[in-house]
């Protein structure tokens, strides 16, 4: 066991870093009430704009709120929402793409052109428009991002299904009279899933980043909820108080990059074909 952990770290040092980062942030999210020294919403006008120090490790914001506590509570929003976006878009997108690829012809044409329409919009703009139209809430922001994120899963899934569809084991199932839906759900999709999961794992970081971006622009969370993107935008008005933006910004950076490291490792393990080196 110990040996295999060492081997893993030696083979994937960056993945190990990513896992540590995520472990720390997930721990923060789960244990926020225990770890955070202050209530993230309580204002203390007597100690506004305090630089990082022993009383407030990450300093305080314009209302005298403790930034360290707010960053910790922020993990409760960012991490689950990033994961939820990926689950939603991956589930919908891959089923959609699988149906298109498997049934082909007109179904394929129609379904994929719809996906193309969504892809033709700049993702962040469409997400902004949707989030604004749906109204300001965390769930709506997640939905908005998921809506713009699913087509890439659909495209990938469709491509994979097109190759698998013609393979011998699928043909043999069809020959023995298996139901088409059963073939799709039980044989084809499971055989394509590993590549899609690789895409999903690298997508978590992007999802968190996009979510933070929406909050930064004023869509997503409402005050007093502590959310990293919103906290960054809080601090840009006065750059002299750099710590207001820096710590939540650094958290966004760490979590996104951690997700990318982990995603890379998962790809290497699950999908040897995508390795570029031999």
């Amino acid at each position: 066991m110990k040996h295999s952990v060492q081997k893993f770290i030696r083979k994937n040092p960056l993945a190990a870093v990513g896992i540590v980062i995520w472990a720390v942030f997930i721990l923060c999210a789960v244990l926020a009430p225990v770890i955070a020294p202050y209530d993230p919403a309580v204002q203390d006008l007597a100690s506004r704009f305090q630089a990082p120090g022993s009383a407030h490790w990450f300093g305080t914001d314009s209302f005298g709120r403790d930034i360290f506590s707010r960053v910790i509570y922020g993990a409760q929003i960012s991490i689950p929402s990033g994961i939820l976006v990926v689950i939603l878009s991956c589930a919908f997108g891959s089923l959609y793409g699988a149906v298109a690829g498997y049934f082909g012809k007109v179904v394929d044409e129609v379904l994929m052109r719809i996906a193309d329409i969504i892809l033709s919009f700049p993702a962040i703009l469409l997400a902004m428009a949707l989030a604004a139209a749906l109204g300001k809430s965390v769930l709506n922001a997640i939905l908005a991002i998921a809506v713009v994120a699913w087509p890439k899963y659909a495209r990938m899934m469709r491509g994979l299904v097109l190759t698998v569809r013609e393979s011998e084991y699928v043909t043999s199932e069809r020959v023995i009279g298996q139901n088409r839906m059963t073939i799709l759900l039980k044989t084809i999709i499971p055989n394509c899933m590993s590549s899609v999961l690789v895409l999903a794992s690298t997508d978590v970081g992007t999802a968190i980043l996009t979510f933070a971006g929406l909050s930064f622009l004023g869509m997503g969370v409402s005050p007093p909820t502590a959310e990293w993107g919103y906290m960054v935008s809080d601090g840009v008005a006065i750059l002299e108080y750099w710590w207001i933006s820096f710590f939540p910004g650094a958290s966004i950076f760490l979590v996104s990059i951690g997700a990318n490291f982990i995603g890379d490792a998962i790809r290497d393990i699950l999908d040897p074909r995508m390795k570029t080196e031999v």
């Binding site: 930064f216 910004g249 950076f253």
Partner: peptide, 14 residues
């Protein structure tokens, strides 16, 4: 790339 993405985020408003 990740660093650039993170930076472009803060560049959006700032």
């Amino acid at each position: 790339l990740a660093a650039a993405m993170a930076m472009s985020l803060s560049a959006c408003g700032g």
